[in-house]
Simulated scan of single mutants.
Amino acid sequence: MANKDELKKRLTEVQFHVTQNNGTEPPFQNEYWNEYKDGIYVDIVSGKPLFSSKDKFDAGCGWPSFSKPLHEEEMIEKEDTSHYMIRTEIRSRTADSHLGHVFNDGQAPTGLRYCMNSAALKFIPKEKLEEEGYGEYLKLFHKK
């Protein structure tokens, strides 16, 4: 994985702050809170697939929210007691990026809300999955 100096060059200031310093971007003022095109969301640091737009929903919180990850094994849960709250932080296993938090107030089928920072994610639209090396995820968007 890239070291901190390399990441500072590659990521924007907000992306670095969120992923490397456990930061949070402002609600309703981030890139993907209201993005609903078909595609997948990958870790901005490692490129590992994290979420599908098929599992995204509007939780009214101002951050992208998902009912489940694409791959549970890429999610690390940690207790977060910052800001006078007890929450469950979500980090990516491969890059150890801070992604956001998971809450028990989501929709069916899981009842979970993975509330993520846009700055920790990169959206790959369905039309670009093949060319960006994520062609195996096209099957998520085929009509049944």
Score class of each variant (00 low, 15 high):
residue 1 M to Y: 09
residue 2 A to G: 03
residue 6 E to R: 08
residue 6 E to T: 14
residue 6 E to S: 15
residue 7 L to D: 02
residue 7 L to G: 03
residue 7 L to A: 07
residue 8 K to T: 13
residue 8 K to W: 09
residue 9 K to A: 14
residue 10 R to W: 05
residue 12 T to P: 09
residue 12 T to I: 11
residue 12 T to S: 15
residue 13 E to G: 00
residue 14 V to E: 12
residue 15 Q to K: 05
residue 16 F to P: 07
residue 17 H to P: 02
residue 17 H to R: 15
residue 18 V to P: 04
residue 18 V to M: 11
residue 18 V to S: 05
residue 20 Q to I: 13
residue 22 N to H: 07
residue 22 N to R: 14
residue 23 G to V: 01
residue 25 E to Q: 00
residue 26 P to S: 01
residue 26 P to N: 01
residue 26 P to Q: 06
residue 27 P to F: 03
residue 28 F to Y: 10
residue 29 Q to T: 11
residue 30 N to L: 10
residue 30 N to I: 07
residue 31 E to S: 10
residue 32 Y to T: 01
residue 34 N to C: 13
residue 34 N to I: 14
residue 35 E to A: 14
residue 35 E to G: 12
residue 36 Y to G: 07
residue 36 Y to K: 10
residue 37 K to W: 04
residue 38 D to A: 14
residue 40 I to K: 05
residue 41 Y to V: 05
residue 41 Y to H: 07
residue 45 V to E: 01
residue 47 G to F: 08
residue 47 G to Q: 12
residue 49 P to T: 05
residue 50 L to I: 01
residue 51 F to N: 08
residue 52 S to Q: 11
residue 52 S to E: 06
residue 52 S to K: 10
residue 52 S to W: 07
residue 53 S to Y: 10
residue 54 K to A: 06
residue 55 D to V: 02
residue 58 D to W: 00
residue 59 A to D: 06
residue 60 G to W: 08
residue 60 G to V: 06
residue 60 G to P: 09
residue 61 C to K: 05
residue 62 G to N: 07
residue 63 W to P: 02
residue 67 S to M: 08
residue 67 S to I: 03
residue 68 K to E: 03
residue 69 P to M: 05
residue 69 P to V: 04
residue 70 L to I: 06
residue 71 H to D: 12
residue 73 E to S: 12
residue 75 M to H: 04
residue 76 I to A: 03
residue 77 E to P: 05
residue 78 K to W: 00
residue 78 K to G: 00
residue 82 S to W: 00
residue 84 Y to N: 01
residue 84 Y to L: 12
residue 85 M to E: 06
residue 87 R to P: 05
residue 88 T to W: 00
residue 88 T to S: 03
residue 88 T to I: 08
residue 89 E to N: 06
residue 90 I to T: 08
residue 90 I to R: 00
residue 90 I to A: 02
residue 92 S to R: 05
residue 93 R to G: 13
residue 93 R to N: 15
residue 94 T to L: 09
residue 94 T to R: 06
residue 94 T to F: 04
residue 96 D to T: 03
residue 96 D to Q: 11
residue 96 D to A: 02
residue 99 L to F: 14
residue 104 N to C: 09
residue 106 G to H: 03
residue 107 Q to H: 06
residue 108 A to D: 15
residue 109 P to E: 10
residue 109 P to V: 09
residue 110 T to N: 09
residue 113 R to K: 12
residue 114 Y to G: 01
residue 117 N to A: 05
residue 117 N to H: 07
residue 118 S to N: 10
residue 120 A to I: 08
residue 120 A to V: 10
residue 121 L to H: 14
residue 121 L to Q: 10
residue 122 K to C: 12
residue 122 K to Y: 11
residue 123 F to E: 11
residue 123 F to M: 14
residue 123 F to L: 14
residue 123 F to I: 15
residue 125 P to V: 12
residue 126 K to L: 09
residue 127 E to S: 12
residue 128 K to E: 15
residue 128 K to Q: 14
residue 129 L to D: 00
residue 130 E to K: 15
residue 130 E to H: 14
residue 132 E to M: 14
residue 132 E to C: 08
residue 133 G to W: 07
residue 135 G to W: 09
residue 135 G to D: 11
residue 137 Y to Q: 04
residue 138 L to S: 08
residue 139 K to G: 15
residue 139 K to Q: 15
residue 141 F to G: 09
residue 142 H to L: 13
residue 143 K to Q: 13
residue 144 K to E: 13
